[in-house]
Simulated assay, not measured.
Amino acid sequence: MSDTTQLRFGIDFGGTGIKGAAVDLTAGDFASERVKVDTPEESTPEAVLDIFRTMLADHPDITGPVGVTVPGIVRHGVVGLAPNIHPAWQGLDADEFLTRGLDRDVHVVNDADAAGLAEAAVGAAKGRSGVVLVTTLGTGIGTALLHDGVLVPNVELGHLEIDGRVAEKWASTKVRKSEGLTYEAWAKRLTVYYRTVERLFSPDLFVVGGGVSASHHKFLHLIDIDTEIVPATLQNRAGIVGAALLAEN
């Protein structure tokens, strides 16, 4: 059984679902079953806070700070542009609001940045120096930029415009499914995307995360770029793990 002093609770708050789990900071992975509930249609801060309270009440042994991801820009705990959740979040000091509402320290981070932190600390980018770009392919394209393991926050490279198209509206997992693209056709789009980012940042490594990384063998080898590209180790667990690590550190 894990030492509870080494456990922290991480919450991944998304536009469609809210997921939470206890994380073993030493192992860098889940120490409890993941809990998932649907994000309320009216995802106001108060409604989401109630869900967080329930999650934490179900894990009374997990004390200490809590990490929370948000699908939007986060600057010093204040939420910026976040189009997939209730507009009341925009401009809210979420660190202060959630800390007061949960009666414990809460630290909020962009969801892709949390995934990047996790992969750098305990995942596919652990021990890697230089410039690493962690990308999460899902509803959109989330990105986290790290230099020698240090995060540069709020790098929204899924919003790059390439040939007149916003990248994530042309090359995300959601688009692959909605357009019925084969993995080969999708990989051609991803090649265009990653080559563009490659030219702009000259990274040493790309890490590809999101739920689709579990199927990396179907498409990753088809992406034709010069930079090393590898699947994420933590897959869709990375947001929760990264949030918990951030809460501690």
Rank of each mutant, 00 (worst) to 15 (best):
S2P: 15
G10N: 07
G10P: 02
I11D: 08
I11V: 15
I11G: 08
F13Q: 13
T16V: 14
K19H: 10
A21L: 14
A31Y: 12
S32V: 00
E33F: 05
E33S: 10
R34S: 06
K36L: 11
D38F: 06
P40L: 11
E41K: 14
E41H: 11
S43N: 01
R53Y: 05
R53I: 09
R53S: 06
M55F: 15
L56Q: 08
H59A: 15
P60D: 13
G64E: 00
G64F: 00
V68Y: 00
V68I: 02
G72S: 01
G72E: 01
I73M: 04
V74I: 13
V74K: 02
R75L: 08
V78S: 09
V78Y: 03
G80D: 07
L81A: 14
N84H: 06
I85R: 01
Q90I: 08
A94H: 05
D95R: 08
D95P: 00
E96M: 14
R100F: 08
D103F: 05
D103N: 14
D103T: 08
V106G: 02
D111C: 04
A112E: 08
A112W: 08
A114G: 02
A114C: 03
A114Y: 01
V122H: 07
G127D: 10
G127W: 12
R128Q: 14
S129H: 07
V131S: 07
L133R: 07
L145M: 15
L146Y: 14
D148Q: 04
D148E: 11
G149L: 06
V152A: 12
V152D: 10
V152Q: 13
P153L: 13
V155E: 12
D163T: 11
A167F: 09
S172Q: 07
S172Y: 06
S172V: 10
K174A: 14
V175N: 07
S178D: 15
G180K: 07
G180H: 13
L181G: 06
Y183A: 05
Y183M: 12
K188E: 15
R189I: 09
Y193P: 04
R195K: 15
R195E: 12
L200Y: 10
L200A: 09
L205P: 01
L205I: 01
V207W: 02
V208I: 09
G209P: 02
G209F: 00
G210S: 03
V212T: 11
V212A: 07
S215L: 15
H221P: 03
I223E: 09
I225F: 10
V230R: 14
V230A: 11
A232Y: 01
T233G: 09
V241W: 01
V241I: 15
G242H: 00
A243R: 00
E248Q: 09
